[in-house]
Design a protein around this nucleic acid. Structure first.
Lengths: 191, 191, 191, 191
DNA sequence: AATGAATGAGAATTCATTCAT
DNA sequence: AATGAATGAATTCTCATTCAT
């Protein structure tokens, strides 16, 4: 059990290190050497715990996703009502701990590779499915069936679009503007 | 005169080849060798016409941008009225010749590198500025000042978000759905 | 301990291989591939132990210098008296193990790059400083102050000039002639 | 004749340009493109007038040699007596127009390649032969036969050694010091 | 479990050189 | 005579990956 645990711990540490490097250096700039160094481990250990570089990046994708998912869950727990649930899900995506240029960019980098990496695609699909399964039920009580379907797509797209823009780090969009824009969109949709 | 143009022709050919390869292979997979081969030229010629790989990718970004810009211009010319202008701009972004998974993904790949490439950032800024200068005037006649400002951000974000999703090539979103979603958003905004 | 040393061992082996190749092929002809092959190692390893080609060549310069320095030290230890010290230093520069056409030429090749390589310059400066600090004290007891100063420059120049000529490998100068010439010069200077 | 002349003119211009580039960039840094640009000509023309890069560098070696030779001749003409001839030859080698760090270094760069370039060797041999044929006769009248022979080697070596040192551009030796050193050596030899 | 030595594939990049015009 | 387009070989350098310890 201790044995199983150390493996889990190392994988976790390496994944976090890789996530950091990815945010700083992009996918091409994320080398195993940098990741190992950031994790304070030896170069060789990375591929002891991960099949290959892609395997590590998949773990990063899952980690990034898990962090966001936890934030969503946390916020949904504190909320009541269908409208509140929708708002909580959305708010999680713009919480100061996630809606950062580096994180948005890291996410972008991973998404860009999806068409060329089967596993990335699988993970991405899971993420979308969860988004849908979170959003659809409350939306269906707030809107007609087809409007609810459309709203799932629309909300997701608006979030992604604002993330993309924020991830460019061009300074043309502040977090406040993004949040305001999102609120406006939700208001149009639900009011 | 023909002589002066051969440089332009070769650059164009190489840029187009690079654009194709980028769509297929992503940024990391876009090697000079592949580009040269696709263009039917020798490996050495690429760096005869481009300073380095980044220089070539910048040309690709400008090309992709120019193609979209031309489509926007074409559609705006055929249109009258402020509402029509906005719709034309938006429609250009979803015209069948651009709104393709590979193109959306290529665009994503380039955007992901913006924070680490000064020139990419500059080009991206130009693109956003043009988007704004196209959208803002008609929107200002259709909406109150602050709503118009917000609409510029919102429309752009919705387009980007739908492009991002489409670029994942996961089959979860059809062009028709994207267009419908966009229409719905515009209707909410302008009606 | 052995582990800590393997880096030192490999660097040493590679530096020696590079020194050999430099003697045969000159600076431009000294490619990392040739060096690796000569050392019986893989191509990739060279830049595992050296930052880049210049880093390797700097190590070569230090090696060549160290070998000569050791020879100087060895000969000075066996000697007594100021005149003897001077002669020992000079003799070291013409000992059969150093005063070889290939070595003189390798040295020439490195010197030729000094103006374009900051670190080469630094090393060269150290070499000259040591030459001065070895020669000056005994010369000062044998000659008036200003003559001693001049003698340092003169002896060094005569050595360098004979090395240069010998390094041309044109057969116009034998080791014996060089030694005789040097002796004659010293005799003029000190007798 | 005009035809023969334009070839000669172009070769001359290119050789001079190459000499300049060699002084700035060393042998490896001397590319045909740089030479052509410096000469204000097209890249292709260089190999129209020279067989290959080595052929061009040989021309540079001959040019550098010719310039020095002319200076020697000029100074010898103005001089009388054997001692004066020797001094004139030596002085030419330290005239302000030749005894420059860049020129000394360029010379060094060429010498360093002599063992690997048959033609360089041939030229170098000619240079030494001329040096000898200039120096030997006056020295033979000033010194005993074997001392004269030795003096030819010694003077040449001292010149070369001072050139080498000056070519390092390390600032440790001024022209004045070099000239003084040379004078001292000649005085020892001839007085 | 962990290290880091070693490999080799492959990338960008540089250039001499050839060739068509 | 002159241009500069085009080629391809060679080189440096980077990394993922393997392996022995």
């Amino acid at each position: 059990m201790a044995r199983a645990k150390i493996e889990e711990i190392r994988r976790q540490e390496l994944t976090e290190a890789a996530y950091e490097i990815l945010q700083e250096s992009g996918i091409a700039g994320t080398t195993l050497a940098k990741v190992a160094e950031r994790a304070g481990m030896s170069k060789g250990i990375v591929l002891h715990y991960f099949r290959d570089k892609d395997d590590l990046l998949e773990a990063v994708m899952r980690l990034a996703n898990a962090l966001l998912r936890d934030e969503v869950v946390r916020r949904m727990r504190r909320t009541k009502g269908d409208r509140g649930r929708v708002e909580a899900i959305v708010a999680a995506n713009f919480s100061p701990s996630f809606f950062k240029p580096e994180i948005c960019n890291a996410w972008l980098s991973l998404c860009a590779e999806v068409p060329r990496n089967r596993e990335f695609g699988r993970i991405q699909r899971v993420i979308h499915a969860r988004m849908r399964s979170n959003l659809a039920p409350p939306l269906r009580t707030l809107l007609p069936a087809d409007a609810a379907e459309a709203a799932v797509i629309g909300i997701t797209a608006m979030i992604d679009g604002l993330w993309l823009r924020f991830g460019l780090s061009l300074g043309g969009l502040t977090r406040e503007q993004a949040v305001a824009e999102m609120d406006r969109y939700l208001a149009q949709l639900l009011d």
